[in-house]
Computed example of a mutant assay.
Amino acid sequence: MREDGRLDPATAAFLAHRSLLFTVAYEMLGSAADAEDVLQETWLRWADVDLDTVRDQRAYLVRITTRQALIRLRTLRRRKETYIGPWLPEPLLTAPDVAEDVELADSLSMAMLLVLETLTPTERAVFVLREVFDLGYDEIAEAVDKTSTAVRQVAHRARAHVAARRPRDVVSPAETRAALEAFQRAVETGDLQSLLDILAPDVVALSDGGGVKQAMPRPIVGADKVVRVFAVGLAMVGTEMSLEPAHVNGYPALIMRLNGEIDGVVAVRVEDSLVTGLYYVRNPEKLSRVERETAVSR
């Protein structure tokens, strides 16, 4: 900061693009904590840049962030190899208006972040920068240290990979909210038949306790099996549980509380008005971002 109280140009530019840079890093990593570390590394490198040599500050900052996220992504992958139980992205409490940007909300959803987990680090970076943030191939090439031709090939491969694994259509927040409300009513009333009715026959349920909180050690597939797991869980919890609607990762979700304390976040993937994916994050290290809204943008 200057003596007159104004921000210096480097700081002003970084802060102006901070939510964008965070979103880039988060979509590449699925971890808010790691995304914040990437932003710290980005700032340290940006602070040493001669701004007179920078033609496009936004593109330059995105390039630094992408390179740092790629380094962190490889470290994160090694960490996941020893992770206890299924790994789920760190949920973010987001403003309701994020849902108005359909492409941004879809890219932030738990379902999409799990699809992105199946890409290689470079494929993930190229897909995010191209499909979500609409960067040009030349800009992406500089960010991932490849030729523009190679980036086009990677982008084509990543799009095909994602298209084969993502829901057929982008589901509206209203449809997700309706399914969640039915799910919430069924859980709160203990109506297992109603719970069965809102689940797709081939629903997949994942829970992430990180080895700290009790969670399903592996994915549960099939509506009948999922209902049985919930029946056991509800019987153990009793009446101290409450479900609170919220916007998480751009979509309606539920925050579960036990005795008033946050126990986890429930997010869903919905197709044809039925829940096809059920994601329950209980790892306490991943719940700090549901206490306050996180700014995201593109």
Rank of each mutant, 00 (worst) to 15 (best):
D138F: 07
V115C: 14
E123S: 09
E142Q: 11
M110A: 11
V128A: 04
E139H: 09
P121D: 07
D134C: 05
M112A: 09
E117Y: 02
V115G: 05
R124K: 14
L135W: 05
M112V: 11
R130D: 11
F127W: 15
S107D: 07
A111D: 14
G136H: 13
F127M: 09
V115H: 02
Y137Q: 12
M110D: 09
F127Q: 04
D134S: 13
L114W: 01
R124I: 03
A111E: 14
A111H: 12
I140V: 15
L135M: 14
M110G: 11
A143T: 04
S109T: 10
R124P: 02
L116S: 00
F127E: 05
A141R: 08
R130I: 05
L119R: 02
R130F: 05
M112P: 04
E117L: 09
Y137I: 11
S109V: 10
T122V: 15
A143K: 02
E131S: 15
V128G: 03
I140W: 02
S107K: 03
D138K: 13
L135Q: 13
L129V: 06
D138R: 15
A111N: 11
G136L: 12
P121R: 09
L116V: 00
M112N: 13
P121E: 07
T118D: 14
L116Q: 01
E131N: 14
T120P: 02
F133P: 01
V128T: 12
F133Y: 06
R130S: 14
L129F: 08
M112E: 14
A125L: 07
M110K: 05
R130G: 04
G136Q: 13
A111P: 01
L129W: 01
V126N: 02
E142W: 04
L113P: 00
A141N: 08
V126D: 06
M112C: 08
D138H: 11
L119G: 00
A143F: 00
G136P: 10
A141T: 06
E131D: 15
M112W: 08
E117D: 15
L119P: 00
T118C: 05
S107N: 10
I140K: 10
A141G: 11
E142Y: 02
M110C: 08
P121N: 12
V132T: 15
T120I: 06
L119Q: 01
S109I: 08
V126T: 09
E123V: 11
A143R: 02
E142D: 12
M110T: 15
D138Q: 14
S109E: 10
D134E: 14
V128M: 03
E142N: 09
S107T: 12
L114P: 01
S109R: 06
A141Y: 05
L119F: 03
D138E: 15
F127A: 08
S109P: 08
T122S: 06
A125I: 06
V126Y: 03
D134T: 12
L135R: 15
E123D: 13
A125S: 09
Y137P: 08
M110W: 00
S107E: 07
E139F: 00
E117K: 03
Y137F: 15
S109H: 08
L135G: 01
A143H: 00
F133R: 14
P121W: 02
V115M: 08
F133T: 05
L129M: 10
L113E: 08
E117C: 04
E117F: 02
L116D: 00
E117T: 07
A141S: 13
T122G: 01
L108C: 07
